[in-house]
């Protein structure tokens, strides 16, 4: 019952683009994001016993990544003792490369969300995890996740000044797109 085989290696590799996107969006620093992904892979590899076979590998990996991120953050915060200042600093935006204005604005607005809001929005809105899965990943109650997502949306909407009626895509319920892709 070797779980650690080429399959697993391939599965982990396949998850890397999503892990990087998530880490990047969360911390806003590509270098740090890649370090986070690396830590995640190493932890995942050495803690495979902690992974329940048949459960969602991606959710497990995301859990490791966000736990790593937040525990680092707590460590830093303790070091800096300047929670507000550190917070403001961390609210960096996602890398801005070759994007049109809409997205630049969006990234700025996104960057000003709290980490709690960012992560649930990413998990539910971008990755397509269910509220229940997101709750498990973030170790929060489902209701908390829902309200965070909603508050994140409200905050984004406010800072983007979006009006109902412009650029409507009736089919785009707020669900993620990458799940189908990444399951290959």
């Amino acid at each position: 019952m070797t779980v650690r085989d080429d399959d697993l290696q391939a599965l982990l590799i396949a998850a890397v683009p999503n892990l990087r996107a998530f880490a990047n969006s969360l911390c806003g620093d590509p270098t740090r994001a890649d370090d986070l992904v690396q830590d995640t892979l190493v932890k995942a590899w050495s803690n495979l016993e902690g992974f329940e076979k048949g459960s969602n590998l991606k959710a497990w990996l995301f859990t490791i990544l966000r736990n790593t991120y937040f525990s680092e953050l707590r460590k830093r915060r303790r070091e800096v003792e300047d929670a507000d200042g550190a917070l403001a600093e961390r609210m960096s935006v996602m890398p801005e490369q070759h994007v049109h204005m809409d997205l630049v604005d969006f990234k700025k607005a996104f960057g000003s969300l709290s980490d709690d809001q960012k992560e649930v929005l990413l998990l539910v809105g971008a990755e397509g995890f269910s509220y229940e899965e997101a709750a498990e990943i973030t170790n929060a109650a489902v209701g908390t996740v829902k309200s965070r997502v909603n508050r994140a949306r409200v905050a984004l909407n406010k800072s983007l000044g979006l009006e109902p009626g412009e650029n409507i895509n009736p089919n785009s319920e707020f669900v993620g797109l990458t799940r189908a892709v990444s399951r290959g």
Binding site: P17, N18, R20, A21, N24, S25, M94, P95, V99, D102, L103, F106, K107, F110, L121, L122, G125, A126, E127, R153, L156, N157, L160, L162, E166, N167, I168, N169, P170, N171, S172, E173, F174, V175, G176, L177, T178, V181
Partner: peptide, 15 residues
């Protein structure tokens, strides 16, 4: 939908 669309656009770019 609008917010979700932008979020996904930004995210897919990273992916």
């Amino acid at each position: 939908g609008q917010i979700g669309q932008r979020l996904r656009e930004a995210y897919i770019e990273l992916i």
